[in-house]
Design a binder for these strands. Structure first.
Length: 894
DNA sequence: TAGGGTTTT
């Protein structure tokens, strides 16, 4: 690294440099050399920064124009480097003493791993949970000499893990938390500048790239639990692959569960791999197949099977806690109910899922023995339940998927992958030997995919693309992702950003608009950012930022199993009859009244308890709202202090128009009962928890459109569909029906129909038709206005023409035949040829004015005959006759 | 008539 830095310093900057004139030259030159010498001694952060500044100075005209000033700048850079070099030496001196717990499996590999870190840029460590990799690897990096020129970053997928791992290492090093080892998660930074090791969420490290694209704060990056393959992890790994090219001194460690390492080996060019076993006790696997059960009339479902599997364990009279994996909350309730009916002695049956009140979740730690925990996937990675000896695995989970074709998010129940099944199996056997009962056949297991598809292949990519554009990382299909996202999903992500007005097409592809640039600064889904920016223009930023914050966190409203009705009743006082968004707003008002703006208020806990709300999520909501407000303030995005809203309905309209700007494709038109038609003709049902469920309005917008057992509209509000046209005319399709000549207005008009995503938002709007279809309008004009003579004002040429035509028509009546006057087509061609492109009264007048007279529109009588009846013939049809001295006018009628 | 789990400038 030292060599590299020396090389890069002066070499890169020599080109284009403009040397100052002597006598300053020698002083200037000396400083340059001094800086080059100091660059590798300094902290990476400063070294990169100084190098950049030096390059700027040298490529400018300053050294020639103002040698004294240039020399002064260089002197300052040199001083910065000296201070930085001292900082680095101090880090060296103060390096903490390290020790490793002997009982951890990874400790045995210590020497080898340290050597590998020294000799390689990337290493991969695969190991099961409990092998100690998360806590020991950062220390090994330190021992290998890392963490001096920059910190050692270690990422975690979950905040709670980042905190506990940091605390654990600090404890092992006998240092106060934050000093040598700290953690940084959203809303909480517990690291001092002199820290050596920083544990942070992967999302947080990703966030840091915005301020420091090369992540020069770190000389080593450990990406822990990389096998989880979240969007953040995949994005981070892609970034790091690029960083390794740009930063020759950077080192990385990727850690992963055993099954998943192949992809990482390939992506990083076969780095050294360490396999660390973490299993302390063996786990036996039994395939608890339907065949091995007493046959019933119907195929038993997985709840049945699970109950039988628990029975099986209980009958063997073995002791030890049981963990059952179920795909859904409902299955958990049913399973718990059925198990309770069995009245097992000394057993406690505990449901467990993320949306449960925290104090109920905590029971899994309080009950020491005889527990049967029935859980969702939350127990697969996020929560570790102590004392589990038996795992019962249905082999199923709800797995989120995003269909780019329909733009709809779904949560189907799907068979889990082999990797996931292994992870579930690993949840027992931590304290003694374990048993894993799989409620499917071994053949079924073997036929399953190795891994769950990474999140990047089943997500909406709008946010990723927005960030990539902001960080100038190029096109997602050219970015070094471990697995590229599907091209179709990328296209859909771009489409969503176009829909939101965040990007526009340019010659070289897409680029951010001003709006998009602002959206990228907000730590929110682009849809939520979009609605905030709209709210600033509509003077309801305060209200919408509360709503956006609510939509970005998990719903703070809880529904405890046994008290669901109570919760519904208590929470109903917040309900707004027309808008679930305003329900959040009402809840916020009540919250503020209670805590008076203090998140630390002791009243918050009581408020949460009284209204069945999650204390943690309420705090999260407060923090997110605060964070959003700060960023908006920094970006100088403020509500226009325009006119105050004079009515509730104006405020309602402003708020919901703003929300709609982010969710324009989530419009829905009422069909019947609780059913709505959504984009592209699909049918969706209101979420039963919505305040609108009992009185569905004719149009709603939904913040969520999600398919579980059916397609639901969740978090909805009444809207006026005309708002959609106003917000997104570029997405509307216009069609025109029944064009007609409007004599009074002197123009052709039609009934306009406006659709968006195939939903008719406006029908029968009377509008001018000429601009839409000039050719058709012209035809109608000629036929109706001229040929049928339907004009309000008088035109001499029309009177004239009409007269001639009447005369010829009279002949037809007399001779009782219809083939004397030329067909109407002739008249049409006559007018059309002379009034090309004219379709209204104004146009007609203009043409006549331009021509100086209306002669060109006067018909020539001789041209109007198909055949000219002989004079003699006509004499037989006089206009009048005299009979007995009286003259009678004759009228002829055919 | 009822949603698996995370994370963020």
């Amino acid at each position: 690294m030292l060599e590299d830095a020396k090389k890069m310093g002066p070499d890169r900057t020599r080109k284009g440099s403009q040397e100052p004139a002597a006598p300053d030259r020698s002083r200037f030159q000396a400083l340059r050399e001094e800086i080059s010498r100091l660059l590798p001694e300094a902290m990476l952060r400063d070294s990169y920064r100084v190098r950049e500044k030096l390059a700027q100075i040298l490529s400018s005209s300053l050294p020639r124009r103002n040698p004294a000033k240039a020399t002064d700048l260089l002197l300052r850079l040199k001083q910065q480097l000296e201070e930085s070099a001292e900082e680095k030496r101090a880090r060296h001196r103060k390096k903490p003493r390290l020790s490793y717990p002997n009982e951890l499996p990874i400790t045995r590999y210590r020497q080898e791993i340290i050597r590998a870190i020294k000799e390689n840029r990337v290493i991969i460590v695969s190991g099961e949970t409990g092998c100690g990799k998360s806590t020991q690897l950062p220390k090994m990096c330190l021992e290998a000499g890392r963490g001096l020129a920059g910190k050692i970053a270690c990422t975690q997928p979950r905040r709670i893990a980042a905190m506990t791992i940091a605390m654990r290492i600090a404890e092992e090093l006998d240092q106060p938390l934050g000093k040598t080892v700290g953690y940084k998660i959203r809303f909480q930074d517990r690291t001092s500048p002199e820290a050596y090791i920083k544990i942070l969420t992967d999302g947080m490290l990703l966030a840091e790239t915005q301020g420091d694209r090369l992540l020069t704060e770190y000389d080593t990056i450990i990406i822990d639990e990389a096998h989880e393959r979240s969007l953040n992890i995949d994005f981070l790994i892609g970034l790091c692959r690029r960083l390794l090219e740009k930063r020759p001194e950077l080192k990385m460690i990727i850690t992963s569960a055993t099954l998943e390492v192949e992809k990482f080996l390939k992506a990083f060019d076969n780095p050294p791999l360490f396999k660390v076993s973490g299993r302390l006790y063996p786990v036996e696997v039994m395939y608890f197949e339907p065949e091995s059960l007493p046959k019933k009339k119907e195929e038993p479902d997985y709840v049945d099977l699970a109950v039988q599997a628990v029975d099986f364990i209980k009958k063997e009279k073995q002791t030890g806690d049981i963990l059952v994996f179920m795909p859904t909350e409902q299955d958990i309730l049913e399973t718990c109910h059925r198990l309770q009916g069995k009245h097992y002695p000394d057993s406690v049956i505990l449901p467990l899922f993320a949306r449960m009140p925290a104090h109920q979740q905590k029971q899994i730690y309080h009950i020491k023995q005889g527990k049967i925990v029935v859980a969702t996937n939350v127990a697969e990675t996020s929560l570790t339940i102590p004392g589990i000896r038996y795992v019962i695995d249905t082999g199923l989970a709800r797995i989120s998927q995003y269909q780019s074709s329909s733009g709809i998010h779904s949560l189907p129940i799907l068979p889990i992958s082999k990797a996931s099944a292994e992870q579930r199996k690993g949840r027992c056997g931590r304290v003694s030997s374990g048993l894993c009962l799989r409620l499917y056949s071994e053949e079924d297991y073997r036929s399953r995919p190795d891994h769950t598809p990474p999140e990047i292949q089943r997500s909406n990519l709008a946010e990723v693309i927005l960030r990539m554009l902001d960080l100038e990382l190029g096109h997602p299909l050219k970015f070094p992702f471990l697995d590229p996202p599907p091209a179709r999903a990328v296209a859909d992500g771009y489409r969503t950003l176009l829909e939101l007005g965040a990007i526009e097409k340019s010659e070289s592809g897409y680029e951010l608009t001003g709006l998009g640039r602002k959206m990228a600064r907000l730590p929110l889904d682009p849809r939520l950012s979009r609605m905030l920016l709209e709210a600033a223009n509509r003077d309801c930023l305060e209200e919408v930022s509360i709503i956006a914050a609510a939509l970005s966190i998990q719903d703070p409203r809880l529904r405890p199993l046994e008290r669901a009705a109570d919760a519904d009743r208590v929470q109903s006082i917040f309900q707004h009859p027309e808008s679930d968004f305003l329900t959040f707003y009402n809840l916020w008002q009540a919250l503020q009244n209670t805590i008076q703006g203090q998140a630390s208020s002791p009243n918050l806990k009581k408020f949460a308890r009284d209204y069945f709300l999650s204390y943690n999520r309420l705090r999260e909501w407060l923090f997110v709202h605060e964070q959003i407000s700060e960023i908006l303030e920094e970006q100088k995005i403020r509500a226009k202090t325009g006119m105050p809203k004079v009515s509730d309905s104006e405020l309602y309209s402003a708020i919901h128009r703003s929300i709609l700007s982010g969710f324009i494709s989530h419009l829905a038109a009422h069909k019947e009962k609780n059913l709505y038609e959504v984009a592209r003709g699909q049918e969706a049902m209101l979420w039963p928890g919505s305040a609108l469920f009992k009185k569905p309005p004719s149009w709603v917008l939904a913040a969520e459109l999600v398919r579980t057992n059916r397609l639901y509209l969740r978090t909805v509000a009444r809207i006026n569909p005309a708002w959609a046209e106003e917000l997104a005319p570029h997405l509307c399709q216009y069609s025109y029906l029944d064009p007609y000549w409007d004599k009074g207005q002197g123009e052709v008009r039609a009934k306009e129909r406006v659709t968006i995503f195939n939903l008719i938002i406006i029908s029968n709007r009377d509008v001018p038709f000429g601009n839409q279809d000039p050719a058709r309008a012209h035809e109608i004009f000629v036929e109706e206005a001229l040929i049928k003579h339907q004009l309000e004002s008088e035109f001499p040429f029309l009177e004239y023409n009409q007269q001639i035509i009447s005369q010829i028509k009279l002949l037809e009546e007399k001779l009782r035949q219809r083939n004397i006057l030329v067909p109407e087509q002739h008249l049409f061609d006559f007018y059309s040829g002379r009034l090309h492109g004219v379709y209204n009264l104004k146009g007609l007048e203009q043409r006549i004015r331009n021509a100086g007279s209306d002669d060109f529109l006067r018909l020539k009588e001789e041209n109007l005959y198909l055949f000219r009846p002989a004079k003699e013939l006509l004499e037989g049809y006089p206009d009048s006759v005299r009979i007995l001295g009286h003259t009678y006018q004759l009228k002829y009628r055919f």
